[in-house]
């Protein structure tokens, strides 16, 4: 546990000493402000937006995860580029401990940010169970995203390109809200689709359990796959 906390603490030092990473820490605050003060007046003024109110929450939740997606991705890319990653390959820290130490705190932070967001928003009523399931599910984007990007990139420049591509990938399933009912789950090949569908159901007071379960299984399988690829590439 001491090893895990030491590394997690170091990550925060690295974030606070890098101006570009530090600036990303304000992203959730902006998101909270928009959700509290900008969205409700919009919905009040423009009635035609009301059928799409789940979309506001979908975007807010996914953008909430993007702070640690970006920060963790960049910390790991820097580690690879500076070859510090090789040192982790020769210390008595198992690869699982390494992954846990890198992502447990960012994951839990993102869960908390999602909980805050879903509790403070006043655009729709959400049950406690829905809020908890959505918060824990959506935060899984963070490790999957950062590990996936770091499984394919070699340096910061490539990283920036892939970050842009992955930002689009996580949002693609929004298209499911604009297609006929029978085509909606074609977007199920994207893991975030199940988060979005869970949020959509939650805003309509429908059960979210099934979508959340599919989402958890999808994310955990994906996490296992990208972790294996990442471990093979990161330390060599």
């Amino acid at each position: 546990m001491k090893k895990i906390l030491k590394l997690a603490f170091t990550d925060f030092k690295l974030i606070f000493r890098d101006p570009s990473l530090k600036s990303f820490l304000v992203l959730p605050v902006i998101m909270f402000a928009l959700i509290i003060w900008a969205v409700p007046p919009l919905l009040e003024k423009y009635d035609f937006l009301i059928p799409y109110l789940s979309l506001f929450l979908v975007v807010a939740v996914i953008e909430n995860t993007q702070m640690f997606c970006f920060i963790n991705t960049m910390v790991l890319i820097d580690e690879k580029e500076s070859e510090v990653a090789k040192v982790y390959g020769v210390v008595p820290l198992s690869k699982l401990e390494y992954i846990v130490s890198r992502f447990l705190i960012p994951y839990l932070f993102t869960v908390v940010l999602n909980l805050i967001l879903l509790f403070i928003q006043n655009i729709c009523e959400l049950s406690l169970v829905s809020i908890l399931l959505i918060s824990f599910l959506a935060a899984l984007v963070v490790p999957v995203y950062a590990l996936a990007v770091n499984s394919v990139v070699q340096n910061r420049m490539q990283g920036m390109v892939y970050v842009k591509a992955f930002n689009m990938l996580v949002l693609i399933p929004i298209a499911a809200f604009f297609v006929p009912e029978k085509f909606v789950h074609l977007f199920g090949i994207f893991p975030t689709h199940w988060v979005f569908q869970a949020i959509d159901n939650a805003t309509q007071n429908l059960p979210v359990g099934l979508f959340a379960a599919v989402g958890f299984i999808f994310f955990l399988v994906l996490l296992w796959v990208v972790t294996r690829i990442f471990i093979r590439k990161h330390f060599a």
């Binding site: 001491k2 090893k3 030491k6 590394l7 170091t10 030092k13 690295l14 000493r17 890098d18 580690e79 500076s82 070859e83 510090v84 090789k86 040192v87 020769v90 210390v91 008595p92 820290l93």
Partner: peptide, 24 residues
């Protein structure tokens, strides 16, 4: 292991780098 090229966290001090890996 003494690597061929320097590989440290540039934003951390020398002591912080050393102590980070000592913790393992």
């Amino acid at each position: 292991v003494g690597f061929e090229l320097p590989n440290h966290y540039l934003k951390l001090t020398g002591k912080e780098n050393l102590e980070l890996f000592a913790a393992f």
